[in-house]
Design a binder for these strands. Structure first.
Lengths: 234, 234
DNA sequence: GATTGTGAAAGCGTTCACAGCC
DNA sequence: GGCTGTGAACGCTTTCACAATC
């Protein structure tokens, strides 16, 4: 007994960490590690053990008290929960610098997100092959999406074209979008959007850098903010 | 009176949104807009107005009740707070696919983060020019960093090389790192680390996609999770 | 003895709602 | 009348601490 399908909703913060645990567990399994405690996993992931246990508890009670977790079984459960039991082909809109890098980046296909198509508005780019995929014209987006049953789109256009790209993706039937353009896009309700803005990440670091220099010649109590960091090494 | 330097600490969540407001305000200013209310800015940024006001209040009381904010003045204040009153040259470690795309991406230099150097361990890549910068060998990292007074490093290596890259950056004197490799890196206390993991973002979207399909044939109450999204368009 | 799973406490971040000011 | 600035309420996330289990 005990329901096995889409159990209680998992907190977003946990969903964002599960892929990290998954990668670590996969790597360890490949190296022959069959069991792991929350302490060990926490060490690899750079978080604390209580968080690991709480996160994993949302999947169910898959550990063994006094022993730890079975690595292979956990990998399976996380993959199932994240919906990674099958591939999710993606379509990239924008075959410029970034679009090409993403298409050529094996980390996508390797992790279950093969590039199912690339489109661009620029006729000069149409027909060229990047990452083994032929660039097609934006007007063919719908055929690409429906032909390959794609539900995830990646926007790699300049900011000014991002909203058009989003509209085109939604129009073609895509229901999740990962936006690399430095622009907020509007989409209908029911469409998921993830955002990666490279400049924003650098500006956050600049803020910390600047604080550090201010602090150096100002008040005491430095200690440094930041976020994902830890001691040792170097 | 009234301290003008490193005022009360700004919450991380706010620091992450200030660059978004900054970009919007700059664009609007370029189009001749001189004043804006929190409602308008919130609309552009895709957040709610109370959040905008709370965020801006950490900078000081720079609005005018009944009127709104002066765009040019706000741009100046945000730039000052984020430490964007001068450029922050960055050094990229890894001249592969991603490193090259980052070096060629104008969005960096345009926003005050010119590429001050690129290094790689691969002798075959050393000497080539990407994004107008000559690739140098990793062993020259310290000279690059110190010669150009660089404090921000970008890791664009494969996962397996990321920790070595981080160690090399810290050894060379860099104090902030933006890590694109799919690996958790360990750094000494006092070093800030930002992380962008492309596969993680896609896996989060896959989770939502999978939930959507489960929900479609399971329980009612769909409504969709996600995060940065909104109504209208397409 | 070791380690999980989880209530309860503490800490952050968001939203509400309204007093204060133009 | 309109809009900011902010205390207070709320909700989500992290951390603690320990009983339950192997």
């Amino acid at each position: 007994m005990a329901s096995q399908r889409s159990r209680r909703r998992i907190p977003e913060a946990t969903v964002a960490r599960l892929p990290v645990y998954l990668r670590i567990l996969g790597e360890q399994f490949d190296e022959g590690v069959t069991g792991m405690s929350s302490d060990q996993l926490a060490e690899f992931a750079g978080v604390n053990a209580a968080k690991v246990r709480k996160d994993l508890s949302y999947l169910g009670s898959y550990g063994t008290r006094g022993v730890g977790y079975d690595v292979e079984f956990l990998v399976y459960q996380i993959r199932r929960e994240l919906g990674l039991t099958h591939d999710w082909p993606v379509v990239i809109v924008g075959a410029g610098n970034l679009g090409q890098a993403l298409a050529g980046y094996n980390g996508f296909g390797d992790r279950g997100f093969p590039v199912g198509g690339i489109v661009d508005v620029d006729e000069a780019k149409v027909g060229s092959v990047v990452g083994g995929v032929r660039v097609r014209h934006l007007s063919e987006l719908k055929q690409v999406v429906q032909g390959r049953n794609i539900s995830i789109g990646v926007i790699a256009t300049p900011g000014a074209a991002a909203q058009d790209a989003a509209d085109a993706l939604v129009g073609a039937g895509v229901t999740s979008i990962l936006n690399f353009a430095p622009t907020v896009i509007n989409v209908p309700h029911g469409i998921s959007v993830g955002k990666v803005d490279l400049a924003v990440e650098l500006q956050i670091l600049a803020y910390h850098e600047q604080r550090r220099s201010n602090a150096a010649q100002g008040s005491p109590l430095v200690s440094v903010p930041g976020e994902p960091r830890r001691g040792a090494s170097a």
